[in-house]
Simulated scan of single mutants.
Amino acid sequence: MNTMPHGTSASQWFRLIRGGRAPGLRLVCFPHAGGAASFFRSWTHLVPDNVELLAVRYPGREDRLFEPPVERMEELAESLADACASLESSPLAFFGHSMGASVAFEVAVRLAAAPGAVGPEALFVSGRAGPGKNHSRGLANATDEKLVQDLVAMSGTTAEALANEELRELLLPAVRADYRLIERYAASIPSPALDIPVYAYYGDRDDELDEDSVNAWSSVTRSTFVTRSFPGGHFYLEEQTAPLVADLFTRLGVKAST
């Protein structure tokens, strides 16, 4: 891993959504393309008391709005791996949705390869095909109208904000940059890169995924691999938050709040 750029810190990259009392675990959540750390605020009351919930703060949105978005996976994953390595020594778990699943995976790979770094104990990927099964939709250079139509069709909190013309002008550059990052990205896995359990979640009505594409995540680990579907489309987790979070913490051996 590279040394963190000047001025980069864990606090710059993570928003504390919920702080555990003497946390026995940190769950780091990676948002989707165009998404932001606030997407995970709805998880607050579901997180056990001894778990600290952190959400990744991508540049170019919310309180990092005026920073340039990152358009290359390598740059984003390197910075986040360094930020994760700087966290105190509580065990980690990663959850990533859509683009965030690939980002979480790439960060986990870098931590696994870095001498002395502590990687996650489990990786949860959501709403994303496994390596080699992703297909570009060519939206990075689409018109603003086409981008908005695509986001609205998938739903998600970003789509609601895009109904406001002023917010649209602020949000679309980050959305476009994220799509550019996705379209440039290709995971290279000559052999399983991880030794941790990988759990793949998806909506059973997600037009971008099928069982075969989700099962492609099995190639990244030498450990346990499990898939589970939930009712819904690409943003199934907005309506299935409670059962999703409960399942996640069950896999981690932690009882979720109710």
Rank of each mutant, 00 (worst) to 15 (best):
G7W: 02
P48A: 03
F30S: 02
G119S: 03
M4V: 14
T227I: 06
S79P: 00
T250Y: 08
S191A: 15
A174E: 09
G60P: 12
P190A: 01
D195C: 12
A113R: 11
Q12Y: 10
V254M: 01
A83G: 03
F94K: 03
L237E: 03
F94T: 01
A113L: 07
R21Y: 05
T44K: 05
P59V: 10
E183R: 07
S42I: 08
P231V: 13
V118W: 06
L139T: 05
Q149G: 13
G132R: 06
I196Q: 11
E74V: 08
Y58C: 02
V51H: 08
D49T: 13
A81N: 06
L181T: 03
D212E: 15
L244Q: 05
S38L: 01
W217C: 06
L139M: 14
V103R: 03
V107T: 00
A113P: 04
R64P: 13
G127M: 07
P173H: 01
V28S: 03
S90M: 10
A36G: 08
G116M: 04
T258R: 14
G35A: 11
S223V: 09
R18F: 04
V109Q: 08
T44N: 00
G138Q: 02
L54K: 04
V109P: 10
S155Y: 04
I182G: 02
A216P: 14
R176L: 06
Q149E: 15
R251M: 13
G34I: 09
L147T: 00
G132E: 08
F124G: 03
T227H: 08
S213N: 04
R61T: 11
A101T: 01
S102K: 06
R251P: 11
A153K: 07
L80S: 09
T241Y: 05
A85W: 11
R205G: 10
V175R: 07
D144K: 04
N141K: 13
R41W: 07
D144L: 01
R168N: 03
R110K: 15
E71T: 15
L194F: 07
